[in-house]
Design a protein around this nucleic acid. Structure first.
Lengths: 337, 337
DNA sequence: CTGTTAGCGCATTCAC
DNA sequence: GTGAATGCGCTAACAG
């Protein structure tokens, strides 16, 4: 480190550190000439205040944290994109933490965020998480917090989500319109609000078409892919009550489905039509047999970040269950188009 | 913030802050009984030292930065996964910055990293970057730096890359074996070492098959997708010298290619065989017409992070052009399999 | 074994 | 307009 400090600047300019500090922050009561001299030298020496010292003094860190279940998932990647963009505009830095869908990791991550390392937290819950003490602890500590996508209703914090009920409804409708009569729903987690909402939309669509919901067609997937595999395998090999359509709440589950179809020699979409929530550009482009429904991930990231900064800047933490729903942007890509 | 400090603990325990601090850090010369008391109260009050104060004092931040061109790209997402895992093990925090392939952003990001905000930097260059002063500035400031994937040869820093020459060779060979005679190479950037290496591998494979390299078949793509589109469009519509195979250095370019093929009614893989570097699990699973070659992104992330921490911990920054090449793991997925 | 003292680098009183 | 002094919260010398 060059380790050039305010003091260095001050001595070189025959000024006090106080004056230099104020000049750099454009304080009102500093001579224009002095300001100029200070700023010039600062630029020349490539000076920039030590963030730890500055943060310590000002009790603010100019950094936020993103806590997400995974990253090799286009939805979260795109959301990060949006978040980073807003953070950058506001001069904030972004820490990233992955829970890998594990409750224990999530707890330990939030634990680390209690001590003033960040000014705010953006979070999407792990599918495994049931107990939410760790989240309430964060809230109790008055750390601004905004949830996005993966939320639960019983958490008292701001939330940005898509209209998942509508998404589930549309996706199911899509299959119905293409002739499906027996549609299975691959759930992401029976705990997460968005998975439940998608399910409710799915049921609504069935009812609207005067079809009955068959609880055998609700496949309660989770975090364990081996288990998911066997659940889907069972679904596709059962003798009675065969399905002709699958609506998957997650792209990951579709990969398993396709793998199994290949094994069982089930033709998609001739014998089985599939639609999935997905944010990967590749799947929609490259796979002619798959229909997708896409969330406005980038916008969700931006909205969530904006809301967080609003909450940080007001210094008044507004946790009054601000649920913002992005509805307009759900995009269905037809497999045949 | 609960804003509970060492001082609070000390007064509650009738001890000095120094003792409390040492007790918490398991210093040798503190009574077992005292340690216990301190730790118990600390846990009860959920105390954890203010990182800014602690960092300021110790002149180390326990955080690193990742600087990458984009994130909605499975390669980088997976690499982050690996990096985060190692960082977590070592008790480090991870800041993320996106250059969006833009030189100016990259410069401004590195600028912000000069002032001791991080203990080290992991970086993958923007395709647009030509001038590397900003990188050298970082090196001059003795900030540990490790490059991964997107590197340039003339930078004096540690590098973790895959054997891209071998990758290009293998990919091309794959097309040749399937009967292609005229293969185009879609370059990622004529500046990046890995794109160039892939190109060299491509040429080697042609030569090995006693085919000539035709410079018309080198498509010099860049950061501008509209321009890329028109380049590929021109390639696929030319009357003479029609190609029957495409080797793409980036998945992004394949999306364009498929789009154009659809428009022009070119059948893949019957009329045109395509192979691409790709790290998205979806494309290999869902797209029967596409062959892919996959880098060990997760391992690259882990390797790069490990190397960085080695460099940070030694406090001796070893920039002696440590190039580590991960060769073994390049995985080709055949389109027909 | 524990307390006192000092200072990391910066920003903000309060003087002048 | 500018400088001197103070303290953010923590840790590390140095005492005892």
């Amino acid at each position: 480190m060059a380790t050039i400090t305010l003091k260095d600047l001050a001595s070189k300019l025959n000024l006090s550190t106080a004056t230099v500090s104020r000049a750099l922050r454009d304080s009102y009561d500093i001579g224009a000439e002095t300001k100029k001299r200070v700023k010039e030298l600062a630029k020349e020496l490539n000076f920039s205040p030590n963030p730890n010292a500055s943060n310590l003094r000002s009790q603010s860190t100019k950094t936020i944290a993103i806590v997400i279940p995974e990253i090799a998932n286009n939805f979260f990647a795109l959301a990060i994109n949006g978040i980073e963009e807003i953070a950058r505009e506001k001069g904030y830095h972004v820490l990233i933490y992955l829970s890998h869908e594990l409750h224990t990791k999530e707890v330990s991550i939030l634990q680390h965020l209690l001590n003033g390392r960040v000014d705010g937290v953006l979070m999407s819950m792990a599918s495994e998480t049931e107990n939410i003490d760790h989240i309430n602890e964060l809230i109790k500590n008055k750390i601004p917090l905004v949830f996005f996508d993966r939320v639960r209703e019983d958490i008292d914090a701001a939330k940005i989500v898509t209209d998942d009920r509508f998404g589930g409804f549309s996706a199911t409708k899509h299959l119905l319109e293409r002739g499906c009569k027996k549609i299975a729903y691959l759930s992401l987690s029976s705990r997460l609000k968005n998975s439940i909402d998608r399910f409710n939309g799915y049921k609504d669509a069935l009812i609207e078409s005067a079809l009955e919901f068959d609880s055998d067609n609700f496949i309660d997937c989770g975090n364990d892919n081996k288990h998911n595999f066997s659940l889907i395998y069972k679904l596709l090999t059962r003798k009675n009550n065969k399905v002709d359509g699958i609506f998957s709440a997650s792209e990951n589950l579709v990969l398993l489905t396709y793998q199994i179809c290949k094994e069982l020699n089930i033709k998609v979409p001739q014998q089985l039509k599939v639609i999935t929530f997905s944010n990967s550009p590749t799947s929609s482009f490259l796979s002619p047999s798959l229909s997708t429904i896409t969330q406005p991930a980038y916008d969700i990231g931006k909205e969530a970040a904006s809301l967080l900064f609003k909450s940080i800047e007001k210094k008044k933490v507004d946790y009054s269950d601000v649920v913002k729903v992005l509805k307009s942007n759900l995009l269905i890509r037809n497999s045949s188009s």
